[in-house]
Simulated assay, not measured.
Amino acid sequence: MEELKRSVRKKYAELAVGRRRGEKESCCGESPGRVSDLARGSYEGERGEVPEELVGGSLGCGNPVALAELSPGEVVLDLGSGGGLDVLLSARRVLPGGRVYGLDMTDEMLDLARENARKAGVENAEFLEGEIERVPLPDASVDVVLSNCVINLSTDKPRAIAEAYRVLKPGGRLAVSDVVFLRNRDALPRPVREAVELWTGCISGALGRDEYASLLAEAGFEEVSVEVVSTYEPESIEGLDTQEMREALGRVPVASASVRATKPEAR
Rank of each mutant, 00 (worst) to 15 (best):
E3H: 14
L4C: 11
Y12D: 07
Y12H: 12
A13Q: 10
R21L: 15
G22E: 12
E23F: 07
E25K: 14
S42A: 15
S42F: 03
E44T: 14
G45V: 06
G48C: 08
V50G: 07
L59P: 01
G60K: 01
A66C: 13
V76E: 05
S81V: 06
G83C: 10
L85C: 09
L88Y: 04
L89S: 05
L89A: 08
R93Y: 08
L95F: 07
V100N: 02
Y101Q: 09
G102Y: 11
D107R: 13
E108A: 13
L110P: 04
D111N: 14
A117R: 06
K119N: 08
A120K: 02
G121L: 04
N124I: 08
F127V: 09
L128P: 04
E129K: 15
E129W: 03
E131R: 11
R134P: 01
V135M: 03
P138C: 12
P138Y: 11
D139Q: 12
S141K: 05
D143S: 08
V144M: 01
V144W: 03
V144Y: 02
V145T: 01
V145W: 02
V145D: 01
C149F: 02
L153K: 03
K157V: 15
K157M: 08
A160V: 06
E163S: 08
R166G: 09
L168C: 08
G172C: 05
R173A: 02
L182Q: 11
R183D: 14
N184D: 15
V192W: 03
R193T: 08
E197F: 10
T200D: 05
G201R: 05
E211I: 04
S214Y: 07
L215W: 09
L216P: 02
L216E: 00
A217S: 15
V224T: 10
V228I: 12
V229S: 06
E233H: 15
I237C: 06
E238G: 11
E238Y: 04
G239P: 05
L240Q: 02
D241E: 12
T242F: 05
Q243V: 13
A248G: 01
L249Y: 02
L249R: 09
R251A: 15
P253D: 12
A257W: 00
S258M: 00
V259T: 01
A261T: 06
T262Y: 00
T262Q: 07
P264E: 12
P264F: 05
E265H: 12
